[in-house]
Design a protein around this nucleic acid. Structure first.
Length: 493
RNA sequence: CGGGGUGUAGCGCAGCUCGGUAGCGCGCGUCGUUCGGGACGACGAGGUCGUGGGUUCAAAUCCCGCCACCCCGACCA
C-alpha cells in the first residue's frame, strides 16, 4: 500500500480498494477471494450486526445456529436451488491428511467421506431438514429464527466486501402456517432492511421485487433493497425471499392444521452480509478516505491533544476531562494521546478512517475555553465552547447523520433518469450512469436483450410510492409490447 | 473459464532489454532535535529475488515448466 492514501481517481474500483485497505477495514488474505477483517472493519460490522439484531428481536425473531457442513444430497433436494448454487460450492471430500513417501503432506486417499459435505453457501437446506423434524402441528408455527454465520460461495470474481468467497452475514429462516403470513413476514423484513439502510447507514435504498432472472434460486418472489454507489452503479444491499412451499415440499415439512388436515409449511428467508460494509464505503467515501455515519461509527469522536515541549500535563488533563464528559454522555470517544505521532499525522489518520468528529485541544483552546471541532463529512472546522460540549456534539452527530443521508439521496436523485425510448436509455446508461426508469414488457427475453446490449439489468420492479408514476402502464420501447409499469435499470456490482 | 498483468525486505516499488552475487521510498529499532495539518538528522536491523529445472565460470536478470495472486469479462449477497 502507498504510504499516503491515493486520492480518488478516475478508477473508482481502485479508489475503493485503496480506501478500504488504508482505513484498515479489510485486507487480502492468503486465500483467493477471501479477506481478513481487522478490528477497524470488524467493529463496524459489529455495530451493524447489533443494530440489526435488535431490530430482528423487536420483530419477534430469535437467534440459533446450524452447521457449517451440509450433506451434498441436501442441496439436491430443491431443483432450482441446486441450479443456483451447484457451480459455486466448496466441497469437503476427506477427513484426514497424511505424510507420503516423499515427506509431502497430502490428502489421505483412505480417508474419503462416504458423502461429500458442502460448505454452506446458504442454509435453507439444512434448516428445512431440521424444521421438518421440529414442526408437526399448527401450534409449532410460526418459527422465526435468525442465524449469524459465515458462508462460502466460490465466485469467479471477487471484490473486498462486495463479493468475497467467504463472507459474514445473517440469514433469517421463518416457517408459517399460511401464505399470507409468510408474505407479510417477507415484506416486514424488507422494511427492516430498508429502515436499517436509511436510518443507520444513511444510505437511501429502493425497495422492489426481482425479476425472474434475478430471483433467488428456490424462491417464489425475491424482494430487495437496491442502493446507488458513487460511480452510479447499483448495489443489491439486502434480500428478503418469499419461498412459498418449495422448501417445505423438498424436505417434506408438513403440519396438521386446526381442521386436522396435513399442509405444507410456508417459508421465508432473508439476509444481509458484510457487503453492507462495502456499501457504506462506496456511498459516503471521498478523496480523503471513508466517511462513517455517526450511528455506526465505532469511534464517533476522536480527541487529538496538541502537545508541546512543556505544559503537556495541562493539555492532557483538559483532554481527559473532555473525553470523560463525552463518554458519560454515551458518546463513543477516543483520546489519542499517543506520543509517537504528531497532531498532523493523527488528523490525517482519522480522516482516512472516517471518524465523524475530531476535536483538537491545545494551549490556545484552553486559554479560550474552547475546542477545535472538525467535521469529517464537510471538512468544516469551528471553535466550540467547552461549556455544554457533550450536548453540542450530540447535536452535530445527529446533523452529520442526517446530512450524509440527504447528500446520498440528492446524489441518487440527480442520477436517476426516466427514459421513454431505447436510444435515450442507452445514452443514460452509457454516459450518466445511475438508475434509469423505463417501461418493460415483463419478459425475460427483453430483459436479456437489454443486458447484452447495454450491460444494464433490471435491479428491481419498485414497490409503489417510491417514484412518481412508475406503476402507470405504458409501452416497452424495446419490444413495443405493453408494459405494466416502469422498472429500475442500472449497471450493477 | 477466456483476455491482460504481477510475483524482489513488513508495505509500495526499481533493477531484468545488455548476466558479475540486490537497491529506493515508507514503515521498524536506538539517540537527539521537534510537535496547531502526514517532522528532521545520525546510526542500525531486516531479503530462500514465487517455485522446479536448464544454459553459464557466474542467473533477480536468459530459456522451459509449474504455482499463486491482482485486474477486465462471463456468474453472483
Amino acid at each position: 500500500m502507498a504510504d499516503k492514501i491515493t486520492p480518488r481517481s478516475e478508477d473508482y474500483a481502485q479508489w475503493y480498494v485503496d480506501v478500504v485497505r488504508a482505513a484498515r477495514l479489510a485486507d487480502y488474505s492468503p486465500v483467493r477471494g477471501s479477506m481478513i477483517i481487522p478490528p477497524n472493519g470488524y467493529e463496524l460490522w459489529e455495530n451493524m450486526r447489533d443494530a440489526l439484531d435488535a431490530m430482528f428481536k423487536a420483530t419477534g425473531h430469535r437467534n440459533a445456529y446450524f452447521p457449517l457442513f451440509i450433506p451434498q444430497s441436501f442441496l439436491a433436494r430443491e431443483a432450482q436451488h441446486v441450479d443456483g448454487f451447484a457451480k459455486e460450492c466448496a466441497v469437503v471430500t476427506h477427513h484426514r491428511l497424511m505424510v507420503d513417501d516423499d515427506g509431502e503432506l497430502v490428502v489421505d486417499p483412505e480417508a474419503k467421506l462416504e458423502e461429500p459435505l458442502v460448505v454452506r453457501p446458504t442454509s435453507e437446506t439444512i434448516i428445512w431438514d431440521t424444521y421438518s423434524k421440529w414442526i408437526q402441528s399448527w401450534r409449532d408455527l410460526p418459527i422465526l429464527i435468525n442465524q449469524w454465520a459465515n458462508v462460502v460461495r466460490w465466485e469467479m470474481r471477487t471484490r473486498l466486501f462486495l463479493r468475497t468467497s467467504e463472507f459474514l452475514w445473517q440469514e433469517g429462516h421463518t416457517a408459517h402456517a399460511t401464505e399470507q403470513e409468510a408474505v407479510d413476514e417477507t415484506l416486514q423484513m424488507l422494511d427492516v432492511y430498508a429502515t436499517f439502510a436509511e436510518e443507520w447507514m444513511a444510505m437511501p435504498v429502493i425497495k422492489g421485487v426481482k425479476t425472474e432472472a434475478e430471483r433467488f434460486a428456490g424462491a417464489v418472489d425475491t424482494y430487495c433493497i437496491e442502493a446507488m454507489m458513487q460511480d452510479g452503479k447499483a448495489l443489491q444491499a439486502g434480500t428478503s425471499h418469499f419461498l412459498g412451499q418449495n422448501f417445505a415440499k423438498a424436505f417434506d415439512c408438513t403440519f396438521q392444521n386446526q381442521n386436522g388436515e396435513l399442509e405444507h409449511v410456508w417459508a421465508t428467508s432473508w439476509g444481509v452480509s458484510t457487503r453492507l460494509v462495502g456499501a457504506l464505503v462506496m456511498t459516503h467515501g471521498d478523496d480523503k478516505g471513508i466517511v462513517l455515519p455517526p450511528k455506526l461509527a465505532p469511534t464517533q469522536v476522536v480527541i487529538v491533544p496538541i502537545t508541546r515541549k512543556d505544559g503537556n500535563e495541562v493539555i492532557l488533563e483538559a483532554a481527559e476531562k473532555v473525553r470523560k464528559e463525552l463518554a458519560d454522555a454515551g458518546i463513543r470517544v477516543f483520546l489519542d494521546d499517543r506520543e509517537q505521532h504528531r497532531p498532523g499525522w493523527k488528523f490525517n489518520e482519522y480522516e482516512v478512517q472516517g471518524v465523524p468528529i475530531r476535536l483538537a485541544i491545545g494551549p490556545r483552546d484552553i486559554e479560550n475555553n474552547v475546542v477545535e471541532l472538525a467535521r469529517r463529512d464537510t471538512g468544516e472546522k469551528e471553535s466550540v465552547s467547552m461549556d455544554g460540549l457533550a450536548a453540542s456534539i450530540l447535536d452535530i452527530l445527529d446533523n452529520i447523520q442526517q446530512g450524509l443521508f440527504d447528500r446520498a439521496m440528492a446524489f441518487r436523485q440527480t442520477h436517476t433518469s426516466t427514459a421513454d425510448d431505447y436510444e435515450s436509455f442507452q445514452a443514460f446508461i452509457e454516459e450518466k450512469g445511475g438508475f434509469v426508469l423505463m417501461h418493460w414488457d415483463g419478459t425475460p427475453e427483453t430483459e436479456e436483450r437489454i443486458k447484452e446490449e447495454t450491460k444494464a439489468t433490471i435491479r428491481c420492479i419498485p414497490l409503489v410510492g417510491q417514484f412518481e408514476g412508475t406503476e402507470e402502464p405504458g409501452v416497452d420501447p424495446v419490444s413495443g409490447k405493453p408494459s405494466k409499469g416502469r422498472v429500475v435499470f442500472a449497471r450493477s456490482y
